[in-house]
Amino acid sequence: MAQRNTWQRDRVRSALGDAQGFVSAQDLHASLREDNTGIGLATVYRALAALAANGEADQLQSPEGEAIYRACASEGHHHHLICRSCGTTVEIQAHDVETWAQRTAATHGFTQAEHVVDIFGLCAACTARNRVPH
């Protein structure tokens, strides 16, 4: 069943597009609350789930286990490099990972294999800020 497009979903989509990097539903809700939109947290969760299901948003799990979202800049399957400090995100293609995943699945008799690979680290700017002079 197709979901109707509501002004609330449009506003969540817009706020997600304005966010820097990946954000949690709670953080996005706080941003919407600051703008006095009247959009509730449950609505934000539903809208983000719909956007992710439609391919309009990337959804992944942070290292802490929280679902985080980002407006999708690429179509199709891709991976991310994500800075743990500032949230800078780079969408990447990882052909070696694709080959490895399919080969590993086939070795074990699996078909229609899917995978999620996201790499968390520190971007160059955060690494430079964290360096301590000797």
Rank of each mutant, 00 (worst) to 15 (best):
D96K: 10
V97E: 14
R103I: 12
G38I: 03
H78L: 06
R70M: 10
A19T: 14
G55Y: 03
G38R: 02
T6K: 02
R70F: 00
V90Y: 12
D18Y: 07
L28K: 08
S85Q: 12
A25Y: 03
A105T: 03
N54Y: 08
A106H: 13
A50N: 14
A57S: 11
T43G: 08
Q61D: 15
T104C: 05
R103T: 13
H78Q: 04
D10P: 00
A25P: 13
A25W: 06
R70A: 04
N36Y: 11
R103E: 15
G21F: 03
A42G: 13
L60C: 12
P63Y: 05
S31F: 07
R84V: 10
L81H: 13
L41Y: 14
T107I: 12
R46H: 05
A67P: 12
G38W: 01
E98R: 00
T43A: 09
Y69T: 01
D96H: 08
A105R: 01
C72Q: 10
E91K: 03
T43L: 02
T88K: 14
S24T: 08
L81R: 11
Q61A: 15
H80T: 07
Q3T: 10
A53N: 10
A49H: 04
G55Q: 04
G76C: 14
Q61S: 12
S74W: 03
D10Y: 01
V23S: 02
E98D: 15
L32I: 01
S62G: 09
G17N: 05
L41A: 07
E91N: 12
R70C: 01
G17V: 00
T37V: 05
A57Q: 00
A42I: 07
E75A: 13
H80C: 10
R46F: 04
L41W: 06
S62L: 07
Q3F: 05
D35G: 09
G17H: 01
L32C: 11
H95R: 08
L16P: 02
Y69F: 09
N5I: 12
H95P: 15
Q3L: 07
N5F: 05
D58Q: 02
A49Y: 00
L16M: 00
A53E: 13
I82M: 08
G21Y: 10
Q61T: 15
S31Y: 01
G40K: 07
I68N: 04
S85M: 08
T104K: 06
L41P: 11
R11S: 00
N5V: 13
I68L: 04
T43H: 05
A53L: 06
H78T: 08
G65L: 09
E56A: 06
R70N: 03
L32E: 03
I68P: 14
Y45P: 13
H79E: 14
R13Y: 05
T89R: 06
L48R: 02
R4H: 04
N54W: 07
A106Y: 03
Y69S: 02
A94V: 01
S85V: 11
A52W: 02
